[in-house]
Protein backbone atom coordinates (compact mmCIF):
# COMPACT_ATOMS: atom_id res chain seq x y z
CA UNK A 1 0.00 0.00 0.00
CA UNK A 2 3.04 2.28 0.10
CA UNK A 3 2.73 2.61 -3.66
CA UNK A 4 -0.79 3.88 -3.17
CA UNK A 5 0.38 6.40 -0.56
CA UNK A 6 3.12 7.63 -2.86
CA UNK A 7 0.64 8.01 -5.69
CA UNK A 8 -1.72 9.91 -3.44
CA UNK A 9 1.04 12.25 -2.27
CA UNK A 10 2.10 12.92 -5.85
CA UNK A 11 -1.44 13.63 -6.95
CA UNK A 12 -2.06 15.94 -3.99
CA UNK A 13 1.10 17.89 -4.73
CA UNK A 14 0.17 18.23 -8.39
CA UNK A 15 -3.33 19.24 -7.29
CA UNK A 16 -1.95 21.97 -5.03
CA UNK A 17 0.14 23.39 -7.83
CA UNK A 18 -2.91 23.33 -10.07
CA UNK A 19 -4.98 25.13 -7.43
CA UNK A 20 -2.30 27.81 -7.10
CA UNK A 21 -2.21 28.34 -10.87
CA UNK A 22 -5.97 28.66 -11.07
CA UNK A 23 -6.12 30.93 -8.02
CA UNK A 24 -3.56 33.25 -9.56
CA UNK A 25 -5.33 33.22 -12.89
CA UNK A 26 -8.79 33.90 -11.47
CA UNK A 27 -7.50 36.60 -9.12
CA UNK A 28 -6.16 38.69 -11.99
CA UNK A 29 -9.01 37.77 -14.31
CA UNK A 30 -11.62 38.83 -11.77
CA UNK A 31 -9.87 42.16 -11.23
CA UNK A 32 -9.63 42.68 -14.96
CA UNK A 33 -13.44 42.73 -15.22
CA UNK A 34 -14.64 46.17 -16.28
CA UNK A 35 -16.36 48.12 -13.51
CA UNK A 36 -15.64 48.13 -9.81
CA UNK A 37 -17.47 47.41 -6.56
CA UNK A 38 -20.11 50.01 -5.89
CA UNK A 39 -20.98 50.64 -9.54
CA UNK A 40 -24.26 48.83 -9.18
CA UNK A 41 -24.99 50.55 -5.90
CA UNK A 42 -24.16 53.91 -7.46
CA UNK A 43 -26.57 53.31 -10.29
CA UNK A 44 -29.32 52.28 -7.94
CA UNK A 45 -28.81 55.47 -5.93
CA UNK A 46 -29.10 57.47 -9.15
CA UNK A 47 -32.28 55.57 -10.01
CA UNK A 48 -33.63 56.37 -6.56
CA UNK A 49 -33.26 60.07 -7.42
CA UNK A 50 -30.03 61.00 -5.61
CA UNK A 51 -27.87 63.42 -7.55
CA UNK A 52 -24.48 62.10 -8.72
CA UNK A 53 -22.55 63.93 -6.00
CA UNK A 54 -24.63 62.48 -3.19
CA UNK A 55 -24.65 59.04 -4.73
CA UNK A 56 -20.84 59.02 -5.05
CA UNK A 57 -20.47 60.16 -1.44
CA UNK A 58 -22.81 57.40 -0.24
CA UNK A 59 -20.96 54.75 -2.27
CA UNK A 60 -17.58 55.92 -0.98
CA UNK A 61 -18.90 55.76 2.55
CA UNK A 62 -19.86 52.11 2.10
CA UNK A 63 -17.13 50.86 -0.23
CA UNK A 64 -14.38 53.25 0.82
CA UNK A 65 -12.31 50.53 2.46
CA UNK A 66 -11.76 48.77 -0.86
CA UNK A 67 -8.04 48.37 -1.23
CA UNK A 68 -6.12 50.81 -3.43
CA UNK A 69 -2.78 48.95 -3.15
CA UNK A 70 -1.09 47.86 -6.36
CA UNK A 71 -2.75 44.70 -7.69
CA UNK A 72 0.34 42.56 -7.17
CA UNK A 73 0.68 43.36 -3.50
CA UNK A 74 -3.07 42.73 -3.16
CA UNK A 75 -2.41 39.35 -4.75
CA UNK A 76 0.39 38.53 -2.32
CA UNK A 77 -1.81 39.54 0.58
CA UNK A 78 -4.63 37.38 -0.78
CA UNK A 79 -2.34 34.36 -1.14
CA UNK A 80 -1.00 34.88 2.38
CA UNK A 81 -4.47 35.00 3.90
CA UNK A 82 -5.53 32.03 1.78
CA UNK A 83 -2.75 29.96 3.32
CA UNK A 84 -4.35 30.64 6.68
CA UNK A 85 -7.73 29.59 5.34
CA UNK A 86 -8.98 33.17 5.22
CA UNK A 87 -10.99 33.91 2.06
CA UNK A 88 -11.41 37.55 3.00
CA UNK A 89 -14.61 39.54 3.48
CA UNK A 90 -17.43 40.32 1.14
CA UNK A 91 -17.47 43.81 -0.31
CA UNK A 92 -21.18 43.82 -1.04
CA UNK A 93 -22.32 42.36 2.29
CA UNK A 94 -19.87 44.58 4.14
CA UNK A 95 -17.79 42.68 6.61
CA UNK A 96 -19.38 39.26 6.17
CA UNK A 97 -16.62 36.65 5.74
CA UNK A 98 -16.59 35.05 2.32
CA UNK A 99 -16.23 31.63 3.88
CA UNK A 100 -19.49 32.20 5.75
CA UNK A 101 -21.34 33.09 2.53
CA UNK A 102 -19.89 30.08 0.75
CA UNK A 103 -20.54 27.64 3.58
CA UNK A 104 -24.17 28.69 3.79
CA UNK A 105 -24.62 28.34 0.01
CA UNK A 106 -22.65 25.10 -0.35
CA UNK A 107 -25.18 22.53 0.91
CA UNK A 108 -27.86 23.90 -1.42
CA UNK A 109 -25.62 23.07 -4.35
CA UNK A 110 -23.89 19.91 -3.16
CA UNK A 111 -26.94 17.99 -1.99
CA UNK A 112 -29.15 18.47 -5.06
CA UNK A 113 -26.23 18.03 -7.47
CA UNK A 114 -25.03 14.88 -5.76
CA UNK A 115 -28.51 13.38 -5.50
CA UNK A 116 -29.36 14.28 -9.09
CA UNK A 117 -26.09 12.90 -10.35
CA UNK A 118 -26.38 9.59 -8.51
CA UNK A 119 -30.01 9.12 -9.53
CA UNK A 120 -29.22 9.82 -13.17
CA UNK A 121 -26.12 7.60 -13.05
CA UNK A 122 -28.11 4.69 -11.66
CA UNK A 123 -31.03 5.04 -14.07
CA UNK A 124 -28.85 6.00 -17.04
CA UNK A 125 -26.48 3.06 -16.60
CA UNK A 126 -29.29 0.52 -16.24
CA UNK A 127 -31.13 2.00 -19.22
CA UNK A 128 -27.86 1.96 -21.16
CA UNK A 129 -27.36 -1.75 -20.53
CA UNK A 130 -30.91 -2.48 -21.67
CA UNK A 131 -30.51 -0.23 -24.71
CA UNK A 132 -27.30 -2.09 -25.62
CA UNK A 133 -28.61 -5.62 -25.13
CA UNK A 134 -31.93 -4.90 -26.85
CA UNK A 135 -30.44 -2.59 -29.46
CA UNK A 136 -32.09 -4.38 -32.35
CA UNK A 137 -35.56 -4.29 -30.79
CA UNK A 138 -38.00 -1.41 -30.80
CA UNK A 139 -37.75 -0.76 -27.04
CA UNK A 140 -33.97 -0.55 -27.17
CA UNK A 141 -34.19 1.97 -30.00
CA UNK A 142 -36.78 3.98 -28.10
CA UNK A 143 -34.55 4.08 -25.02
CA UNK A 144 -31.61 5.36 -27.05
CA UNK A 145 -33.77 8.04 -28.62
CA UNK A 146 -34.97 9.11 -25.17
CA UNK A 147 -31.33 9.52 -24.16
CA UNK A 148 -30.39 11.63 -27.18
CA UNK A 149 -33.53 13.71 -26.80
CA UNK A 150 -33.04 14.57 -23.13
CA UNK A 151 -29.31 15.11 -23.62
CA UNK A 152 -30.10 17.67 -26.32
CA UNK A 153 -32.39 19.92 -24.25
CA UNK A 154 -30.61 22.95 -22.71
CA UNK A 155 -30.78 23.13 -18.92
CA UNK A 156 -32.76 26.36 -18.69
CA UNK A 157 -35.40 25.11 -21.11
CA UNK A 158 -35.70 21.89 -19.17
CA UNK A 159 -35.96 23.70 -15.83
CA UNK A 160 -38.59 26.12 -17.14
CA UNK A 161 -40.55 23.24 -18.62
CA UNK A 162 -40.55 21.46 -15.27
CA UNK A 163 -41.69 24.64 -13.54
CA UNK A 164 -44.49 25.11 -16.04
CA UNK A 165 -45.78 21.57 -15.64
CA UNK A 166 -45.30 20.91 -11.93
CA UNK A 167 -45.86 24.37 -10.51
CA UNK A 168 -47.89 26.53 -12.86
CA UNK A 169 -50.15 23.86 -14.33
CA UNK A 170 -50.46 21.19 -11.66
CA UNK A 171 -49.61 23.16 -8.49
CA UNK A 172 -47.76 20.13 -7.18
CA UNK A 173 -44.42 21.63 -6.21
CA UNK A 174 -43.09 25.02 -5.08
CA UNK A 175 -41.28 27.22 -7.57
CA UNK A 176 -38.63 28.93 -5.43
CA UNK A 177 -36.52 28.83 -2.30
CA UNK A 178 -35.25 25.94 -0.25
CA UNK A 179 -38.15 25.61 2.20
CA UNK A 180 -41.34 27.17 3.42
CA UNK A 181 -40.15 30.44 5.00
CA UNK A 182 -42.68 30.24 7.81
CA UNK A 183 -40.96 27.14 9.17
CA UNK A 184 -38.14 27.21 11.70
CA UNK A 185 -34.98 25.55 10.27
CA UNK A 186 -34.11 22.41 12.21
CA UNK A 187 -34.70 18.68 12.19
CA UNK A 188 -38.46 18.95 12.59
CA UNK A 189 -40.34 16.69 10.16
CA UNK A 190 -42.23 19.67 8.74
CA UNK A 191 -39.05 21.55 7.87
CA UNK A 192 -37.24 18.52 6.43
CA UNK A 193 -40.35 17.65 4.44
CA UNK A 194 -40.51 21.16 3.07
CA UNK A 195 -36.82 21.08 2.12
CA UNK A 196 -37.28 17.82 0.28
CA UNK A 197 -40.36 19.17 -1.47
CA UNK A 198 -38.44 22.26 -2.60
CA UNK A 199 -35.48 20.18 -3.74
CA UNK A 200 -37.48 17.84 -5.97
CA UNK A 201 -37.50 20.01 -9.08
CA UNK A 202 -33.80 21.00 -8.95
CA UNK A 203 -32.83 17.36 -8.36
CA UNK A 204 -34.99 16.19 -11.26
CA UNK A 205 -33.41 18.86 -13.44
CA UNK A 206 -29.88 17.78 -12.55
CA UNK A 207 -30.83 14.14 -13.06
CA UNK A 208 -32.50 14.67 -16.43
CA UNK A 209 -29.59 16.79 -17.63
CA UNK A 210 -27.05 14.00 -17.23
CA UNK A 211 -29.32 10.97 -17.77
CA UNK A 212 -28.96 11.00 -21.55
CA UNK A 213 -25.19 11.17 -21.34
CA UNK A 214 -24.99 8.17 -19.02
CA UNK A 215 -27.38 6.16 -21.13
CA UNK A 216 -25.52 6.76 -24.38
CA UNK A 217 -22.08 6.29 -22.81
CA UNK A 218 -23.08 3.06 -21.11
CA UNK A 219 -24.77 1.76 -24.24
CA UNK A 220 -21.71 2.23 -26.40
CA UNK A 221 -19.46 0.87 -23.66
CA UNK A 222 -21.55 -2.29 -23.29
CA UNK A 223 -21.64 -2.81 -27.04
CA UNK A 224 -17.85 -2.51 -27.16
CA UNK A 225 -17.40 -5.01 -24.35
CA UNK A 226 -19.90 -7.41 -25.91
CA UNK A 227 -17.63 -7.56 -28.94
CA UNK A 228 -14.55 -8.31 -26.84
CA UNK A 229 -12.85 -11.67 -27.23
CA UNK A 230 -13.15 -12.64 -23.60
CA UNK A 231 -16.93 -12.40 -23.67
CA UNK A 232 -17.11 -14.92 -26.51
CA UNK A 233 -14.50 -16.97 -24.66
CA UNK A 234 -16.58 -16.99 -21.49
CA UNK A 235 -19.56 -18.15 -23.53
CA UNK A 236 -17.60 -20.96 -25.13
CA UNK A 237 -16.31 -22.01 -21.71
CA UNK A 238 -19.89 -22.39 -20.53
CA UNK A 239 -19.84 -19.70 -17.87
CA UNK A 240 -23.20 -19.08 -16.20
CA UNK A 241 -25.23 -16.18 -17.64
CA UNK A 242 -25.06 -14.34 -14.32
CA UNK A 243 -21.27 -14.55 -14.28
CA UNK A 244 -21.09 -13.34 -17.88
CA UNK A 245 -23.39 -10.43 -17.08
CA UNK A 246 -21.06 -9.50 -14.21
CA UNK A 247 -18.04 -9.65 -16.52
CA UNK A 248 -19.77 -7.42 -19.05
CA UNK A 249 -21.12 -4.99 -16.46
CA UNK A 250 -17.87 -4.44 -14.60
CA UNK A 251 -15.85 -3.96 -17.76
CA UNK A 252 -18.41 -1.67 -19.36
CA UNK A 253 -18.95 0.59 -16.34
CA UNK A 254 -15.22 1.19 -15.91
CA UNK A 255 -14.80 4.20 -18.21
CA UNK A 256 -17.95 5.76 -16.74
CA UNK A 257 -16.52 6.01 -13.23
CA UNK A 258 -14.00 8.62 -14.26
CA UNK A 259 -16.71 10.59 -15.98
CA UNK A 260 -18.88 10.34 -12.86
CA UNK A 261 -16.22 11.90 -10.65
CA UNK A 262 -15.47 14.57 -13.23
CA UNK A 263 -19.08 15.47 -13.86
CA UNK A 264 -19.58 16.06 -10.16
CA UNK A 265 -17.04 18.83 -10.38
CA UNK A 266 -18.47 20.10 -13.63
CA UNK A 267 -22.06 20.17 -12.39
CA UNK A 268 -20.82 22.15 -9.44
CA UNK A 269 -19.77 24.81 -11.87
CA UNK A 270 -22.80 24.45 -14.08
CA UNK A 271 -25.48 24.92 -11.47
CA UNK A 272 -26.15 28.59 -12.33
CA UNK A 273 -29.07 28.16 -14.67
CA UNK A 274 -30.94 25.71 -12.52
CA UNK A 275 -30.38 27.66 -9.33
CA UNK A 276 -31.46 30.82 -11.14
CA UNK A 277 -34.61 29.22 -12.47
CA UNK A 278 -35.65 27.76 -9.13
CA UNK A 279 -34.35 30.74 -7.15
CA UNK A 280 -32.27 28.31 -5.17
CA UNK A 281 -29.61 30.00 -2.96
CA UNK A 282 -26.72 27.73 -3.97
CA UNK A 283 -23.18 28.39 -5.03
CA UNK A 284 -24.10 29.19 -8.63
CA UNK A 285 -26.48 31.90 -7.57
CA UNK A 286 -23.98 33.32 -5.10
CA UNK A 287 -21.33 33.50 -7.81
CA UNK A 288 -23.66 35.07 -10.33
CA UNK A 289 -24.79 37.69 -7.82
CA UNK A 290 -21.23 38.50 -6.78
CA UNK A 291 -20.19 38.96 -10.39
CA UNK A 292 -23.06 41.39 -10.86
CA UNK A 293 -21.86 43.64 -8.01
CA UNK A 294 -18.12 43.06 -8.62
CA UNK A 295 -17.71 41.44 -5.21
CA UNK A 296 -14.14 40.34 -5.88
CA UNK A 297 -13.48 38.29 -2.72
CA UNK A 298 -16.70 36.31 -3.09
CA UNK A 299 -16.03 35.69 -6.78
CA UNK A 300 -12.50 34.57 -6.06
CA UNK A 301 -13.72 32.38 -3.21
CA UNK A 302 -16.41 30.73 -5.32
CA UNK A 303 -14.01 30.12 -8.19
CA UNK A 304 -11.50 28.69 -5.76
CA UNK A 305 -14.07 26.27 -4.38
CA UNK A 306 -15.15 25.13 -7.85
CA UNK A 307 -11.50 24.66 -8.81
CA UNK A 308 -10.74 22.64 -5.71
CA UNK A 309 -13.87 20.56 -6.26
CA UNK A 310 -12.93 19.71 -9.85
CA UNK A 311 -9.30 18.96 -8.99
CA UNK A 312 -10.32 16.85 -6.00
CA UNK A 313 -12.83 14.99 -8.17
CA UNK A 314 -10.03 14.34 -10.64
CA UNK A 315 -7.76 12.93 -7.97
CA UNK A 316 -10.52 10.74 -6.55
CA UNK A 317 -11.35 9.47 -10.05
CA UNK A 318 -7.70 8.68 -10.71
CA UNK A 319 -7.24 6.82 -7.46
CA UNK A 320 -10.53 4.95 -7.79
CA UNK A 321 -9.47 3.84 -11.24
CA UNK A 322 -6.32 2.25 -9.90
CA UNK A 323 -8.46 0.41 -7.37
CA UNK A 324 -10.94 -1.00 -9.87
CA UNK A 325 -8.70 -1.57 -12.88
CA UNK A 326 -5.68 -3.80 -12.22
CA UNK A 327 -4.09 -2.75 -15.51
CA UNK A 328 -3.47 0.76 -14.20
CA UNK A 329 -1.97 -0.52 -10.93
CA UNK A 330 1.71 -0.96 -10.51
Amino acid sequence: MTGFARRLAGKLLAGLVMVWVVVTFTFFLVHALPGKPGDVQYESYIMQGFNPEEARAKVTAVYGFTSHDPLFSQYLGYLGRLLHGDLGQSVYYSGVPVSHLIWSALPWTVLPVLTGLLVSFLIGVIAGVIAAVKRSSRWGGLLSVSGSLVAGVPSFVLALLLLLVFHTEWHLLPDAGTSDITLEPGWSPEYVGSVVQHAVLPVISYALLSYGGWLLAMKSSVITVLGDDFILASELRGLAPVTRARYIGRNAILPLFTVLALSFGIMFAGSFFIEQTFDYPGLGELLLKSIGVRDYPVMAGAFLLITVAIIAANIVADLCYTLIDPRVRR
Binding site: D229, F230, A233, L236, R237, N251, I324
Partner: peptide
Protein backbone atom coordinates in the same frame (compact mmCIF):
# COMPACT_ATOMS: atom_id res chain seq x y z
CA UNK B 1 -16.12 -26.30 -21.36
CA UNK B 2 -17.26 -29.54 -19.75
CA UNK B 3 -16.93 -31.87 -22.77
CA UNK B 4 -15.56 -29.60 -25.45
CA UNK B 5 -12.62 -27.36 -24.64
CA UNK B 6 -12.07 -24.42 -26.96
CA UNK B 7 -8.78 -22.51 -27.08
CA UNK B 8 -8.59 -19.10 -28.66
CA UNK B 9 -5.95 -17.64 -30.88
CA UNK B 10 -2.98 -16.44 -28.84
CA UNK B 11 -3.38 -12.87 -30.02
CA UNK B 12 -6.87 -12.72 -28.59
CA UNK B 13 -7.58 -11.70 -25.05
CA UNK B 14 -9.67 -14.57 -23.82
CA UNK B 15 -9.54 -13.60 -20.14
CA UNK B 16 -11.49 -10.98 -18.22
CA UNK B 17 -8.89 -8.22 -17.76
CA UNK B 18 -10.25 -7.20 -14.36
Amino acid sequence: GGELGYVFQASQNSMNPL
